[in-house]
Amino acid sequence: MARMVRFYEHGGPEVLRLEPMDLRPPGPGEVQIRVKAIGVNRADALLRSGTYIENPPLPSGLGLEAAGIVEALGPGAQGFEPGDVVSVIPPISMARWPAYSELATFPVEHIVKHPPSLDWQVAASIWMQYLTAYGALIDISKLSAGDFAVVTAASSSVGIAAIQIANMVGATAIAITRTSKKRAALIGVGAAHVIASDEEDLRSRLFDIVGLDGARVVFDPIGGPTLEPLTSAMSKGGILIEYGGLSPEPTPFPLFTVLSKTLTLRGYLVHEVVSDPLRLAAAKQFILDGLNEGYLRPVIARTFRFDEIVDDLSP
């Protein structure tokens, strides 16, 4: 028996319910952990509201990130022992393997022994942000020293992760945020330049920074009208990775800019990396190296107790 957060209807945070559940033991190839901390992601809110790429039957659990102590191993789950301190790589289905629970079960390949220097909160915040940014910037775009990396929604966890990863490989991170209120914080996490898009002309500021040669890599979860100034400041043969659609406005396709610069505009999901064992192994090593060497430093915006989660996530 363990307490678990579930929802019986789609809606805002008020639909969440914290209730006791009789949980099944881990199945073949699964590991059950006693959860010490969980991460809260936009994907969790999308699942709860019925607008996520996964649409499970109700009632459903939710949550993608956790850190804790190995409680039990299912048949065939190797490489861990009860008592091991671990964190969780987000699974493909949060409904099948939900993290918002005192006891949670995950596939063994999604369990990682995290560095002992990390506390529970930091350990639970690692994988979604750094895997998402790594997959786009390193695995797909091959970001390297000398490149410019334009990062929109830069103050988000994935945006901060992208800035840190750019610095780790010697690239120059250009952070785009709406207002200058977050400028100092973004400089503090490693942005070389910050553009406040509601206060400055995005196109001209980008050209001021990157020059006529342009930026090779753009990492964007917004879409909408900003796609046009972003692509206009890209280099020939550049790549724009789109990993979200936060803009409520239509996203015009910049056809002539794409043609004249032979640009690649690519949709991306972190599942591409998570579902490929070889790519995931490379990602794990890169991220663990970055944590151990101090390049990657998760920023925790807020913490709260599990038994207050329903109240704290409500308006």
Rank of each mutant, 00 (worst) to 15 (best):
residue 78 Q to C: 03
residue 78 Q to G: 10
residue 78 Q to M: 10
residue 78 Q to I: 05
residue 78 Q to P: 00
residue 78 Q to E: 15
residue 79 G to N: 10
residue 79 G to K: 03
residue 79 G to D: 03
residue 79 G to I: 08
residue 79 G to E: 07
residue 80 F to I: 11
residue 80 F to T: 09
residue 80 F to E: 07
residue 80 F to M: 11
residue 82 P to S: 13
residue 82 P to L: 12
residue 82 P to F: 12
residue 83 G to T: 04
residue 85 V to C: 07
residue 85 V to I: 06
residue 85 V to K: 13
residue 86 V to E: 09
residue 86 V to A: 14
residue 86 V to P: 07
residue 86 V to Q: 14
residue 86 V to R: 04
residue 87 S to Y: 04
residue 88 V to G: 00
residue 89 I to V: 14
residue 89 I to N: 13
residue 91 P to E: 05
residue 92 I to P: 08
residue 92 I to W: 11
residue 93 S to Q: 12
residue 93 S to V: 08
residue 93 S to T: 10
residue 93 S to F: 14
residue 93 S to N: 09
residue 94 M to W: 07
residue 94 M to T: 15
residue 94 M to G: 06
residue 94 M to C: 04
residue 95 A to I: 05
residue 97 W to I: 00
residue 97 W to N: 08
residue 97 W to P: 00
residue 98 P to L: 14
residue 98 P to R: 09
residue 98 P to Q: 08
residue 98 P to V: 03
residue 99 A to M: 05
residue 99 A to C: 07
residue 99 A to P: 01
residue 99 A to E: 02
residue 101 S to Q: 11
residue 101 S to M: 05
residue 101 S to R: 12
residue 102 E to M: 08
residue 102 E to N: 12
residue 102 E to W: 11
residue 102 E to S: 12
residue 103 L to I: 15
residue 103 L to S: 08
residue 103 L to P: 12
residue 103 L to H: 06
residue 104 A to R: 08
residue 104 A to H: 09
residue 104 A to C: 15
residue 105 T to R: 11
residue 105 T to A: 00
residue 105 T to K: 01
residue 106 F to R: 01
residue 107 P to V: 11
residue 108 V to W: 01
residue 108 V to K: 09
residue 109 E to N: 10
residue 109 E to H: 07
residue 110 H to N: 14
residue 110 H to T: 00
residue 110 H to A: 00
residue 111 I to R: 03
residue 111 I to M: 04
residue 112 V to K: 02
residue 112 V to H: 09
residue 113 K to V: 04
residue 114 H to N: 09
residue 114 H to P: 01
residue 117 S to I: 06
residue 117 S to R: 05
residue 117 S to H: 12
residue 118 L to Y: 05
residue 118 L to T: 03
residue 118 L to H: 03
residue 118 L to P: 08
residue 119 D to H: 01
residue 119 D to Y: 13
residue 120 W to M: 13
residue 120 W to F: 11
residue 120 W to G: 11
residue 121 Q to Y: 11
residue 121 Q to S: 12
residue 121 Q to G: 10
residue 122 V to M: 02
residue 122 V to H: 07
residue 123 A to H: 06
residue 123 A to D: 09
residue 123 A to I: 06
residue 123 A to R: 05
residue 124 A to M: 06
residue 124 A to H: 04
residue 126 I to V: 05
residue 126 I to R: 00
residue 127 W to N: 01
residue 127 W to R: 01
residue 128 M to L: 12
residue 128 M to N: 06
residue 129 Q to D: 05
residue 130 Y to A: 02
residue 130 Y to F: 13
residue 130 Y to W: 02
residue 130 Y to D: 02
residue 131 L to H: 08
residue 131 L to T: 07
residue 131 L to N: 12
residue 132 T to F: 04
residue 132 T to S: 15
residue 132 T to C: 03
residue 133 A to M: 01
residue 133 A to I: 03
residue 133 A to P: 02
residue 133 A to Y: 02
residue 134 Y to V: 10
residue 135 G to R: 05
residue 135 G to E: 06
